[in-house]
Structures are given as C-alpha cells and as structure tokens.
Design a protein around this nucleic acid. Structure first.
Lengths: 229, 229
DNA sequence: CACCGTATATTAACACTGTAAATTTATCAG
DNA sequence: CTGATAAATTTACAGTGTTAATATACGGTG
C-alpha cells in the first residue's frame, strides 16, 4: 500500500521536511518559512510536501507541537535534577529552564508565543501539548500545596463561564488542585513577560551574566508564594 | 488609463493609506496586511503607495510608531486622572490603562509586541517612541522614589556593556534615577506577560469581570514595591 | 502666457509565495 | 501479469512586494 522508498528518493521525507523547516527557521526566522524553499533545499518538488502535510498550517502545527514538547521536557528534566525535598530549588530550576530553553531556541519560542506565521491560527489540538509545557511548574506548585507551603491568599477564581476550559487545562497540566493551576498561570505570566521582552531585545541584560532581572524575579516569586513553614 | 484630475484624486493619500491599513488590520489581522489590498480598497494603483512609503516595512514602522504613541498617551491620561498625591492609585491606574488599551486594540498590541509581519525588523527609530510608552509608569515610580516610598532592595543593576543603551532608555523614558527605570521594566514585564497571554487567549478570564488575575497582580506589585511609610 | 522641472500617478513586468489539478512513476496485492 | 494505490511530477492559478518605464498634472519661473 505505502510506496516504499526508491533508492533515489529521499528517505523519510516527512521527517526531512520538518528538519529543513527548523533549519530554515533558525537561518532566516520563523516568518520566512516557505514550503517552496524547503522543497528546493531537499531537492524535491513543492507539491510533494502536500503528500505528508495537508497544507502549510499543518506543518506549522507539527512544528509547534514539537516545540511545546521540547519546552515541556526541558523543564521536567530541570525539575528532576533537584531533589524532591528542595521545593524552592525545584521551582527555581523550572523557571530557569524555561528561560534557558527560550534563549537557546528563540525561533521556537516565538513560533509558539509570537504570531510570526502569516494568517496562522492554532487549532484546538495543540492545547493538550501546550498544557504539557506547564506540567513541571504545576507539579512543583502542587507539591507546595500538598506540603501546606503555598500562599494562596486572595488568589482569584476563574470566571464561571470559563470553568469548562479551566477544567480541561487542569486535566492536561495534571494539576491536582485548581489553586495550583491558578498560581502556575500567575507565575507563567511573570516568567513569560520577562522572557519574551528579553528575546525581543526590548530590555537590556542585567546583573553579571545577563540574568539579573530574571533571578530577582524568581526570588520575588518564591517569596510571594512560598510560605515559610 | 490616465491620472485623474486633482479634485478626483484621493486627498491626503498618505493618511488614507494609514487609515485603511489600520482598518484592514482590525478586519483581517495584522498578518494579512497587504499593500495591494490597501491600494485596491482606496481605488488607486499599488505602486502609488511607494510615493508615500519607501516600502511595506516603512508603512509598518509608521503604524508601530502611531501605536506606541497611542499606548503611551492612554497611560498618561489614566495616570493624570488620579490625584498626584495618591501614588498607589496612580500606579494602579497606569497598569489598568495598559491592559485596557491592549484589550481594546489587540491588533495594535500584537503589531508592537508580537512579530506578525513577515520578515519585519523594527528600525532604531522606534526606540524613542517605545520609550515614550513607558513614561507614565516611569514617572509614577520616580514619584515613589522621590517620596522615599520605593522598595529597591536587591534590585539588580544593568550589565556594564549595556549601560549606554540603558542610559538612552533612561533619557527617552525621562527616568530621573536608574532605579526607577529598572523597577519600571520589572513591572512592565509582569504586566506585559499577563496581557500578552490574555490577548493570545492562552489563559482563561478570572474574577467576575475577567480582570481578576490582573487586579491580583497589580496588588502584588504595589505590595512588593511600595513601602508603607 | 509658455515652458519646464518635480511630484504623483499609471501600466507592465519580475520574482516570489501557497495551493490545486492532472499526470506520471514505482511499488505492492491478488 | 494486472490493477490498485501511494508518492512524486509538471503545469497552472491567484496572490504577494517591488522595480522600471512612462504618463499626467501642478507650481514656479522666463
């Protein structure tokens, strides 16, 4: 049924397309992603891509899902490099990993959180994967909550109308309690704000190694949300 | 065809181009901005635009500058609607204005802080205008500093190599002391993070009117930076 | 007034882009 | 061998930003 590769053909064209797409995003930026250029680079005709991806948006969606997965895994690994008992250290490591990933792969970060692709609208299928990218942070917050070390004073609750969406998010992020997801979103906002401004070169580097602002913010976050029991 | 007589021509074509560009950004989104579509809408040939803007990027740059100016003015007005003596109220009003502007004109916000235009790179000339958009916040922080009510404990300093840029920023934002600019950038990051996630619909609405998370964050910001003297 | 330079518009064309249709090629199942 | 089918091809269409050459109208000067 599936036409096995002829020797002269490109083996695993679907993967090659993705690889070249990433390479071109690094070279010329996410906005310049071009199916024709990808095909040209691989040495295949442009419509051949359509046998593996429905259209350009489908390719972009795959790239986004890959990026989310990479971001999520990176944070999970950083979290697990700190002993489970050191809850503050785990929170710190997760945040630092988020920033490190974004700075190391700025094109992927902008692909996810910017809107660099003309006319692209993310389909619903990316939501679970997006949730996965918050799993590390949520788990740390959950752990703090379980240890009765999470300051949830005055944190707001989701609008009733948005409760279904919130519940889905809670499932995908594996948040044990809604408070954990809410606090995770708050922290995510702070981290994302600094990181996106940093990537866009909208703010100068601070401290000795350029992470001064971020370290300060991580400390402030820990101070605000971790009760000293 | 022949060039229409003057009275039949579009008066103030340069302004018309900008107006139609904004209208199209609202209609179809910033990513779909098209010179040909703009010209079509106005009823003029596409290359006519090039008599008023060097290329598409030049048009985008003017749009960005206009957006920054609008964002800056909006915050200044909000700040001035609160008596000068109420420093906490002024901080709060400025932050709320930032969010309100972004939600009211999401295309403009994404035009500034997203990267929706294919291949567009912001030229250096937007920097002063970008600085202007921080003026309201900076002035409020400056006022707190002058009243000895600003908590600057442990805030980081800019990297020596970035000091020239920082100084230019300080001038454009009219920050009286560097600490004020640093704190303003920190607050900007937090506000920007929540707002950009909100606009991207990455986070659900909280509270009764949808601004629950933001209000909570503004309170936390005030608590962190304003000393109770 | 006539003339000319300049600003502003025009059409035509080039090199791109994503994508659809029709067609060929290569491999498998029966 | 004979289809069937998946995967690749060529061709074509509609759209984009941009440039070149060209035509028109207006403002200032002789």
């Amino acid at each position: 049924m599936v036409r096995p590769k002829k020797h002269a053909q490109v083996p695993n064209l679907k993967e090659s397309i993705k690889d070249v797409a990433w390479q071109q995003m690094v070279d010329v930026g996410a906005a310049e992603l071009s199916l024709r250029a990808i095909a040209r680079e691989i040495g295949v005709s442009t419509p051949a891509i359509y046998n593996h991806y429905a259209d350009r948006d489908a390719l972009v969606t795959t790239l986004i899902i890959d990026a989310y997965t990479s971001l999520g895994d990176y944070q999970l690994a950083a979290r697990d490099s700190v002993p489970q008992s050191d809850r503050r250290g785990r929170l710190h490591a997760t945040g630092m990993a988020y920033r490190a990933w974004a700075l190391a792969k700025p094109q992927r970060y902008q692909l996810i959180f910017g809107t660099p692709i003309s006319g692209y609208q993310a389909p619903a299928e990316v939501m679970p994967v997006a949730g996965r990218s918050l799993r590390a942070l949520v788990s740390v917050i959950d752990q703090l909550y379980a240890a009765n070390a999470l300051n949830t004073a005055a944190i707001p609750t989701v609008m009733p109308v948005a409760l279904p969406i919130f519940t889905v998010w809670q499932q995908h992020t594996e948040a044990k309690v809604p408070e954990a997801l809410t606090v995770a979103i708050m922290i995510w906002g702070r981290v994302h704000g600094l990181v996106s401004l940093e990537i866009a070169r909208s703010i100068p580097p601070f401290g000795e190694t350029g992470d001064g602002l971020f370290m300060y913010e991580m400390d402030a976050i820990a101070q605000q949300y971790i009760t000293h029991t």
